[in-house]
């Protein structure tokens, strides 16, 4: 569905995306995981036609992005990191304007269906700036899905939301996966990536360090983490199995053993903290 090869984007002397290559299969949720400044948002901006790569190719649903930008724009929906709603307009008007941009048929019916689907029907006449953060985020997702895109790009979809609302957004994303929508998701929340993504690409300093399933990434770095206090803070050691973890822990006073998580794997594989 998405094929990216040798993608490079520079801003002055800084290389925001460095020779990135990836493939996303139809119906897959692909997560781009990395700390702030890793190049996630720049990658999404290039994939969504908002900025042009300095070199490299992007193919979306068979369309070369350099040539068929409008064809790609018809196929994609984008939920940006920032809440770029028209805050002075009502929920309904936000969606109606968007339906106009995509020249959709039966706009009223589509808007009504979207409002029902995302639990926003009761707020249709509410001004967008009066909505809670979680509802604004739901409205952004509803807006992106109004045109029934084949591919949905979600840039940090739950950033700044409380845990209960985050889980509600996760449920909505999981439902979309079940409906066959291909999703590219950027996040720096490990739990989010582990729960939602079929595959994850670890991005660090603009480079894609590794791509695999969440489970395999975790296993490749180690299954158990030994944490022990030392003079510099906490010393962490990843171990491939429990036996080795216990051996390491025996050498470190006050050491604790716990199952390794995706964050541990990310740090071990990229050398960077999230």
């Amino acid at each position: 569905m998405i094929k990216v090869q040798n993608l490079v984007k520079r801003y002055g002397s800084k290389c925001a995306v460095d020779n990135l290559g990836l493939e996303v299969q139809p119906g897959e949720i692909f997560g781009l995981l990395g700390p702030n400044g890793a190049g996630k948002t720049t990658t999404i901006r290039m994939l969504t036609t908002l900025c042009k790569p300095d070199s490299g190719t992007i193919e979306i649903a068979g369309h070369d992005l350099r040539i068929k930008r409008d064809a790609v724009r018809r196929l994609i929906g984008v939920v940006p990191q920032e809440r770029n709603l028209d805050l002075e307009l009502t929920v309904q008007d936000n969606l109606m304007v968007y339906a106009g941009l995509y020249q959709l048929d039966k706009r009223r019916q589509r808007v009504d269906a979207c409002l029902d689907l995302f639990g926003l029907a009761a707020e249709r006449m509410t001004q967008a700036d009066k909505l809670s953060g979680g509802m604004q985020r739901r409205l952004l997702i509803a807006r992106a899905l109004l045109s029934q895109p084949q591919i949905l790009f979600l840039d940090e979809p739950t950033i700044g939301l409380d845990p209960q609302i985050r889980r509600g957004i996760w449920d909505s994303i999981a439902t979309l996966r079940n409906e066959g929508v291909t999703i590219v998701l950027t996040t720096h929340y490990m739990d989010e990536a582990a729960v939602l993504c079929n595959r994850i690409g670890l991005l660090s300093n603009g480079r894609l360090r590794m791509t695999d399933t969440p489970g395999n990434l975790q296993i490749s770095a180690g299954s158990f983490m030994v944490e022990a206090p030392d003079s510099n803070g906490i010393k962490r050691t990843l171990c491939p199995d429990r036996e080795q973890a216990e051996m390491v822990a025996a050498l470190l006073p006050g050491a604790l053993i716990r199952p390794a998580n995706l964050e541990d794997a990310f740090i071990a594989l990229t050398g960077q903290e999230l």
């Binding site: 036609t49 724009r73 984008v78 940006p80 770029n84 941009l101």
Partner: peptide, 14 residues
């Protein structure tokens, strides 16, 4: 500032 121009720019509107 509000970045409300971006949805317009990435839409297929000519």
């Amino acid at each position: 500032f509000s970045r409300t121009m971006q949805p317009i720019l990435i839409s297929p509107v000519s």
